[in-house]
Amino acid sequence: MLGSGLLQGLKVTAKNLVGSFHDPERLTTLEYPEQKAKLPENYRNFPFLVSENATDPMGTLRCVGCQICEKECPPQCIYIEKSKDKKPDATGKMQVYPVVFDIDTSVCMSCQICVEVCPFEAIKMDQVFEIATKDRFTALLLDRNQLAKPNSYYHEIHPTEAAEVDARLLAERKAAEEKAKAAATPKPAVAPTPSPTATAPKPPEAPAAGGTPAP
């Protein structure tokens, strides 16, 4: 009969109206600034640079300025200048370091490709999202001082992933030490993820015609 569909609809909305007072399934909103949703561990937003030590972040950056992330970054939001000299890193090994490491977060799309291509576990995804600012130019262009965050912070936001990374780094360091004992020429750390042959300071893949333009 005409109208039965309308009455059914009214029944459903009435059920939801009443349900919103007693059924949490029917009132799923969170009052944002007071209540905050628990971020899943995998949540990612904007990269940061891992430093081993919170007291001396610039001295203990894992980043060696190899510029792979700069090249692989799809929106080209990373800008790196590597040092001419070498400084000892957290393990005491002499390393090149980034003199300038800027990320333009107004361009960054949090795709985490920089994290995936980094052979040194030096750049990881952060979980910040309350980053509104009144100044859209300088305040969103983060330099290496703003980007550097200690490894403990990494453990805080991505516990399982950070534990895996630390274990892998330790194993690599041990392997490298043993290798160093065996052979006189020390080799840099071995890449962790799927391509174990790719070594870090390898010269960048020469871009083909129409390759990635420099920022």
């Binding site: 692989e72 970054c73 799809p74 799309m109 795709c111 490709i113 995936e116 291509v117 129409g210 390759g211 990635t212 333009p213």
Partner: peptide, 15 residues
Amino acid sequence: LGENTSYLGSMPYTD
């Protein structure tokens, strides 16, 4: 853009 970035670099753009 897809022709100017690497194969992997296009993946986030497809999102």
